[in-house]
Computed example of a mutant assay.
Amino acid sequence: MVCIEFEGKRPTVHPEAFVAPTATLIGDVTVERGASVWYGAVLRADICTIVVREGANVQDNSVLHVAPGETLVIGKDATVGHGCVVHCREVGERALVGNGSTLLDQAVVGPRTLVAAGSVVTPGTELPGGMVAAGIPCRPIKPIEGTSSEFWVEHNPSYYQDLAQRHRDGAKEI
């Protein structure tokens, strides 16, 4: 992993977290116990604060940043899918942001909400908890209960926590 101190602020990574060797953490970043930050991800907290809560995962090639002086929180057991741009205020506990989505300034994704792949959550949007949301602009479509999307919200955190452990123990640069 690449950890960069910026103006006296340096990343903090819990010893039981997994941060891939090609991930980059800059400035005021905290990665809590059991969380994972995957290959090619960039968390740039040079002018802000980024917190990846316990058990959350930020997948390959995602970029996290936020406006000056603000804090971005990726909630406990939340998932940020592959190739996302996350420039919002919060991704709630156990929420899932689908691959290639963009979350813009001051947006909030509620707990247990699934943002469909490729969605754009526009500035200031607050998606309520327990929903499936999709589109450009992203809007709530239906409650997540009883949908196929509920499977991903419920099972993705433990899957990625296990996979992170396997990478921590078994991935070797060759």
Results as ranks from 00 to 15, higher is better:
residue 145 E to R: 10
residue 164 A to K: 02
residue 123 P to L: 06
residue 100 G to M: 02
residue 160 Y to P: 02
residue 109 V to D: 09
residue 133 A to I: 05
residue 92 G to H: 05
residue 115 V to N: 02
residue 87 H to R: 07
residue 126 E to G: 07
residue 116 A to C: 07
residue 88 C to S: 04
residue 99 N to V: 15
residue 165 Q to M: 11
residue 112 R to G: 03
residue 140 P to G: 00
residue 124 G to V: 10
residue 147 T to C: 05
residue 101 S to W: 11
residue 89 R to G: 11
residue 105 D to L: 11
residue 95 A to Y: 07
residue 150 E to N: 00
residue 106 Q to S: 15
residue 138 C to I: 09
residue 103 L to N: 01
residue 139 R to W: 09
residue 159 Y to P: 03
residue 154 E to L: 10
residue 158 S to A: 14
residue 125 T to I: 11
residue 120 V to S: 07
residue 130 G to S: 06
residue 136 I to L: 13
residue 163 L to H: 14
residue 145 E to K: 12
residue 153 V to S: 02
residue 157 P to D: 03
residue 153 V to H: 03
residue 92 G to K: 08
residue 94 R to E: 12
residue 112 R to T: 11
residue 90 E to W: 07
residue 135 G to C: 05
residue 85 V to G: 13
residue 85 V to F: 14
residue 94 R to W: 14
residue 145 E to L: 06
residue 153 V to F: 03
residue 107 A to G: 09
residue 155 H to L: 07
residue 113 T to K: 10
residue 88 C to Y: 02
residue 86 V to D: 07
residue 148 S to D: 14
residue 126 E to L: 13
residue 92 G to A: 12
residue 97 V to N: 01
residue 120 V to F: 04
residue 86 V to I: 15
residue 89 R to V: 14
residue 149 S to Q: 13
residue 104 L to F: 00
residue 96 L to F: 15
residue 151 F to M: 08
residue 137 P to H: 01
residue 137 P to I: 04
residue 107 A to P: 02
residue 161 Q to Y: 02
residue 126 E to W: 11
residue 138 C to L: 08
residue 105 D to Y: 10
residue 113 T to V: 10
residue 151 F to C: 00
residue 144 I to F: 06
residue 158 S to R: 14
residue 158 S to T: 14
residue 155 H to C: 01
residue 102 T to R: 13
residue 115 V to S: 04
residue 143 P to V: 07
residue 133 A to S: 10
residue 85 V to L: 15
residue 92 G to Q: 09
residue 135 G to S: 04
residue 96 L to R: 10
residue 123 P to Y: 02
residue 123 P to K: 06
residue 119 S to V: 10
residue 155 H to E: 14
residue 131 M to A: 06
residue 134 A to K: 05
residue 123 P to M: 08
residue 159 Y to W: 13
residue 99 N to Y: 15
residue 163 L to G: 03
residue 111 P to N: 13
